[in-house]
Design a protein around this nucleic acid. Structure first.
Lengths: 221, 221
DNA sequence: ATAATTTTTTAGGTTTATCTAAATTTAATA
DNA sequence: TATTAAATTTAGATAAACCTAAAAAATTAT
């Protein structure tokens, strides 16, 4: 078992998110921005992480997680999201109060604690925002996606992709905040034209045409 | 509000315990033993804590908590014991599994978290071992003590004092582990002589005469 | 293709919490 | 009380995680 400091864990988590779950290489500056530190510090730490073999690193070519590093990152994310569920569901936190605390709790080192917390919470697969929670082996739950068009009145979810790249649509979606990752809730469906009134990220109500709704894929938790 | 590092918090907690809640001065070596570090390191840290005015310190004369330091120590103890209650009552931990985890959780910095956890647990005044939990102002709950002699069959508590200093009694109590702070449970009461069969620290059964039981004060949680 | 810009790395320095070894103060003992 | 022993403090060093400033590599623009 590799042992990681709190700081090292934060680097792994940053690399996980910035690489989109390991898909792309991550730039030094991106990590520095994300962690509000300096590029020189990032280089130092990356070298250390490379020595520990939790990242793959080639000078000037960016970093990414190794197998071991990915597993470690997934465990941190698992812990983070389980604690989020706990704070929101059991301790009546609101979303804006959750982040800082979960950020601390995710670093508690005790496999038993997480195992028991998971049981206590009823083995949740998604946190209340629809983010998937990796299981004890680091496997992400399948997320079933549905076109926004087919969603029921009152249904909630997260936008995962837009299957049309016409820039007019993308510009409109961008403008109303309907970007990938945004939370979305169906408020009303107009029968005469099939358009939807939705709430994006718990903010204002906006309208989306049936045609557009056809191209927006949403996870249903 | 003074900000304390994890290490500084551990020093304050150590001083609190070693001074018996602030009653005696604490020696450098005692802290070093307790925290498994070296006396030289302790001196360094004490100087820092003295500068922050959380301890009172005179070279070579030992150290104790200041008002501010006492308050900080009590908050750490509050957090520790609330987490213990949570782990034992909600997550089904056993006592031997609790310590390491509570030791980590007590350093999470979030007044809101503790406030909500306290509510969630129903404002407990004592942890499951009978240790008092300071309230949000740092005030320890009154502990009502009863002579062991008067305790009911099945009653549990902690020994707080022995109101007789005959060395024969003390030697006997020492031998069976019935020291101050020990957990005690009344198993049987012999009617013919008033002697009690008790369990000390969850270990073996031992007998205590009515006369001795008269002098042993126990907290009843 | 070369120059200019941006990104990344290196070099050298700081702070926190440690350490060892040596010096000093206090306490115990003869 | 003088000496020895124990406890404590000082001095100087180390490792982790950061920093600034300067050098090197990669990218972009002319």
């Amino acid at each position: 078992m590799i042992s990681l400091s709190l700081t090292e864990e934060n680097y792994l988590k940053a690399i996980y998110h910035l690489s989109d779950g390991g898909q792309n290489e991550v730039a030094t500056n991106a990590i520095a921005d994300h962690l509000e530190t300096k590029p020189a510090s990032v280089t130092d730490m990356i070298k250390k992480l490379a020595q520990k073999k939790v990242v793959n690193y080639q000078k000037y070519q960016g970093v990414n997680l190794s197998e071991v590093g990915m597993q470690a990152a997934l465990m941190i994310i698992r812990k983070h999201r389980l604690w989020e569920v706990f704070l929101l569901e059991k301790l009546n936190f609101s979303w804006d109060e959750v982040h800082d605390v979960a950020e601390q709790l995710e670093h508690i080192k005790s496999p038993l604690l997480i195992q028991r917390l998971d049981i206590f919470l009823g083995h949740p697969s998604f946190d209340p925002h629809g983010d998937p929670i990796p299981d004890e082996k680091g496997i992400m739950p399948e997320l079933t996606t549905v076109p926004l068009k087919l969603m029921e009145h009152g249904a909630k979810g997260k936008i995962v992709s837009v299957s049309d790249s016409s820039s007019a649509l993308l510009r409109y979606l961008e403008k109303i905040g309907a970007v990938i990752g945004a939370h979305i809730e169906v408020l009303e469906r107009e029968e005469f034209d099939g358009s939807l009134e939705v709430k994006i990220n718990h903010r204002d109500r906006v309208f989306i045409s049936e045609a557009a709704a056809h191209h927006i894929l949403v996870t249903t938790v």
